[in-house]
Simulated assay, not measured.
Amino acid sequence: MTKLTPLAPPRDCIGCPTRRSGACAELPPRTQARLGALARSRNYPRNHRFWREDSPPAFYAVVTRGFVRIQRHSPDGRRQIVGIAHPGELIGAGIESRAGYALEAATPVALCRFDRGAFERLARTLPDLRKLVTRQVLRQLHEIRSMSWMLARLSREERLRLCLNDMRDLMPWQPQPDGSGILTVEWSRADIADLLGTTPESICRVLRQLEKRGLLGLLDPYHIRIDDMAALTEGLPVGPGIALLRPAETGSPPCASSLRSADQPGSEQRLDGDQCPRSLRAPRSQREREAPDGR
């Protein structure tokens, strides 16, 4: 039996802060190495547009630093942010031709980019990579469901309080000796407003109301002191599966329970079915070879 020689990770991957978390951590070392050989690191300024709603995406990428906003515009120009991509998250997945949404940098961003054609050709030969794309699409679906519930059922103040709680896990948080903490807000007021379905003026007004009630302190436009996070989130549905914004995590999302685990017969065939983007599916003959007992 031929012994496989371990592939060394590319130089850019060795020091990457997201290599052991998020999308890349879900891949075995050999798949990481083959994918890393296609990677190109790029830095982008705030508000850089990667693609428009009516244009096809040109690449896949893993966010390694900063935040990317996923947004749509109404015919009269109003914007709604429908999601935020965090460090460790794969973007560009689940799209066949026309994007249907615009992608822009909400902060200065670093991406690990992959040519779209090369990524899809590699995915057709690597079941682990196809499963990763499927899990990422399911996570995005779960986040959209959470966002829809939040916009429909929570008040403007409740939305902002829940958002501040989630920001603590995403942005710089400095614990203080008295038990409070200082949150560095890296997003603009306009981005927060368009994410929560309100206006920048309303965001500022609610923050001042929370400050008057002693729940937080506004140090400057980008720093908020939160004295008691438990008091700030009192009465809110905070817990696993409820967070609107959260770092990319390894493992399956809540809505992936219908997928068979990797050690069950037929799991590869299931993931190459309707749930896997058409452009990533392996040829039928290959799927039949990968499925045990021809299933």
Results as ranks from 00 to 15, higher is better:
171 M>H: 07
107 T>I: 01
69 R>C: 02
236 L>M: 06
278 R>C: 13
139 R>L: 01
84 I>M: 07
170 L>C: 13
123 A>G: 01
170 L>Y: 01
292 P>Y: 14
56 P>C: 09
153 R>P: 07
54 D>R: 12
190 A>N: 11
171 M>Y: 01
231 A>S: 04
274 D>H: 13
230 A>Q: 10
63 V>G: 00
29 P>Y: 06
188 S>K: 10
81 I>R: 01
171 M>L: 12
188 S>I: 04
248 A>S: 09
69 R>A: 10
215 L>G: 00
243 A>L: 08
235 G>H: 09
143 E>M: 12
74 S>P: 10
271 L>N: 10
104 E>P: 03
272 D>P: 08
274 D>Q: 14
222 Y>F: 05
147 M>N: 02
186 E>C: 13
38 L>C: 09
127 P>Q: 01
42 R>I: 08
31 T>V: 13
9 P>Q: 06
200 P>S: 06
249 E>T: 09
62 V>Y: 06
263 D>S: 14
64 T>I: 01
245 L>M: 10
293 D>Y: 13
195 L>C: 03
222 Y>L: 11
128 D>N: 10
179 G>H: 10
61 A>G: 02
214 G>D: 04
119 F>M: 05
185 V>S: 01
274 D>P: 14
112 C>T: 11
13 C>M: 15
56 P>M: 07
234 E>L: 07
99 A>I: 03
225 R>K: 11
280 L>D: 01
267 S>C: 10
87 P>W: 01
146 S>C: 15
99 A>N: 04
130 R>T: 06
70 I>S: 13
12 D>W: 09
117 G>V: 13
117 G>Q: 14
164 L>I: 05
10 P>Q: 05
31 T>Q: 00
280 L>P: 02
149 W>A: 13
268 E>S: 10
262 A>N: 12
95 I>D: 07
274 D>I: 15
212 K>H: 12
104 E>C: 12
143 E>V: 13
73 H>Q: 14
193 A>R: 09
178 D>I: 07
29 P>V: 04
228 D>V: 04
169 D>W: 02
275 Q>M: 14
207 L>V: 03
263 D>M: 11
22 G>D: 02
166 D>P: 09
147 M>C: 09
136 Q>K: 12
32 Q>E: 11
109 V>R: 03
253 P>H: 04
250 T>P: 07
181 G>W: 11
63 V>N: 01
65 R>M: 01
286 Q>S: 09
66 G>V: 03
14 I>F: 06
212 K>G: 12
103 L>Y: 00
7 L>D: 12
92 G>W: 07
197 G>K: 00
236 L>P: 06
164 L>C: 08
99 A>T: 03
142 H>P: 08
103 L>M: 13
20 R>M: 07
12 D>P: 04
271 L>C: 14
214 G>P: 05
286 Q>I: 14
89 E>I: 02
145 R>C: 07
99 A>W: 08
70 I>P: 00
70 I>M: 15
132 L>K: 02
263 D>Y: 04
105 A>N: 03
279 S>N: 12
15 G>A: 12
258 S>F: 14
214 G>T: 10
234 E>Y: 10
37 A>D: 13
152 A>Q: 11
103 L>Q: 06
99 A>D: 04
115 D>Y: 01
99 A>V: 05
295 R>Q: 10
184 T>M: 11
18 T>W: 06
91 I>D: 02
286 Q>E: 11
196 L>N: 03
8 A>S: 13
291 A>F: 05
129 L>P: 03
231 A>E: 03
222 Y>P: 07
161 R>S: 08
230 A>L: 09
